[in-house]
Design a protein around this nucleic acid. Structure first.
Lengths: 219, 219
DNA sequence: CGTGGCTTTGAAACATTTCAATCATCGTGG
DNA sequence: CCACGATGATTGAAATGTTTCAAAGCCACG
């Protein structure tokens, strides 16, 4: 209990899609990735399935012009790497140091049966779809302030407790929101000036006025 | 060959997710909807499944502030209305007069079995996910010109033939792209000035220079 | 042939980006 | 333990792109 480093998300292996004795934990192999390390590459074969144990993972794609749209962020308990096609449409990288359970699709099928694999894929796909939709509304919501407000609200919803850790830096946040780091920074400053949120350092915040934040997020 | 009117999408009942004798066509009931008519409402129970036969359908959601993000457009052959939850997250409306096959989930299950229903849901969900991702890259792709270029390219990819019909008006296009109608209009004017596309009226266009358009779309 | 809806165009207002500089934070080595 | 350098975050000012508001144009329809 003494040696929990900077993130407390490792504290409990979260209840994932299924119970604690689910397939992934039974046959998955635990791997650790250092911050910014690639977990899999864009275009690679997608025969492995992953689940975040601790830390945060980001999927992203390189565009010809250097921009790098972020697909999604995956937090402890989330399954990722299950593609609808058979190769990875995006690359996955560790946003922070993180540990991940990895399992082979074949092995999953062998151990749990076709049904169980399908269930996993369904759960992961539904989660991805819902997340993509949420992301979509974030981006259509036009003003920078609204996007940042929604983003913070979304992060806070995920974890209870007064203080919320921003797993990603400004650049990743900006990429996700379709803004520049400067704009994100300005909006955060602005939200703080309005006493809606309060930052302790650049990665830890607390919502002071939930209602105000919700209003800003809703447009 | 002489009498292709404004839309040729009705010409052939397109090959859908499955063969011509699939479940939907066997047990589905055909309904027609007039332009702008609501097919189902946001929040309604999602126990019906739909497939576009002809025309185009749009899903959208009303926001408190009056903006109306568009979820997706569905073209002939597309399944829609299958939700991951049990009520519709968005409303669906007929973009043009259209005919739709409607079937009850229970009836589908009864007629085709659980497996077949699952297959349908899987196909529809995967399609939605892929579409959402494409939409996402459209929105993150920042400049208005790039968005419009990508949009036109996407439409053209769907249907072969020199001329492409824009099923949606400027307002729907703008909502989809996260822009205003004026900006969309200006970008189209600009693309025409550059001799990249050519419009015949406001809803029928032809790509003159595919490569140039692709470059503009790619950023 | 006029009317209503949708599209296009223009000019000014506004928000975001860009570029550049400063500031904090944190780990490293003196 | 403190100074240093590095990385990432913030701030400022100018440039740019998009929106807003207003007006005019186009087309289909009665």
């Amino acid at each position: 209990m003494t040696f929990i480093p900077s993130f407390d998300q490792a504290r409990a292996t979260p209840v994932a899609e299924t119970g604690p004795d689910d397939l992934m934990s039974r046959i998955g192999v635990q791997m650790t990735f250092a911050k910014d390390e690639e977990i899999y590459g864009q275009g690679e074969n997608a025969d492995l399935v992953y689940r975040v144990v601790s830390g945060t993972v980001r999927t992203s794609r390189f565009m010809p012009d250097g921009r790098r749209p972020i697909g999604d962020f995956y937090y402890a308990g989330d399954l990722f790497g299950l593609e609808t096609g058979d190769e990875h449409a995006m690359a996955a990288e560790a946003l922070s140091d993180c540990t991940v359970l990895v399992a082979n699709r074949q092995a999953l099928r062998a151990a749990g049966g076709e049904e169980e694999l399908k269930r996993l894929m369904w759960a992961a796909t539904v989660r991805d779809l819902e997340s993509a939709r949420e992301h979509l509304t974030l981006l259509v919501r036009k003003s920078a302030c609204e996007r940042v407000a929604s983003f913070l609200l979304g992060l806070a919803a995920r974890r209870q407790g007064a203080h919320v850790e921003l797993a990603m830096g400004r650049q990743d946040t900006a990429d996700y929101l379709g803004l520049t780091i400067e704009t994100v920074s300005r909006m955060i400053t602005q939200l703080q000036a309005a006493k809606v949120v309060e930052f302790k350092g650049s990665r830890l915040f607390r919502i002071c006025d939930v209602q105000a934040l919700q209003e800003m997020a809703a447009g």
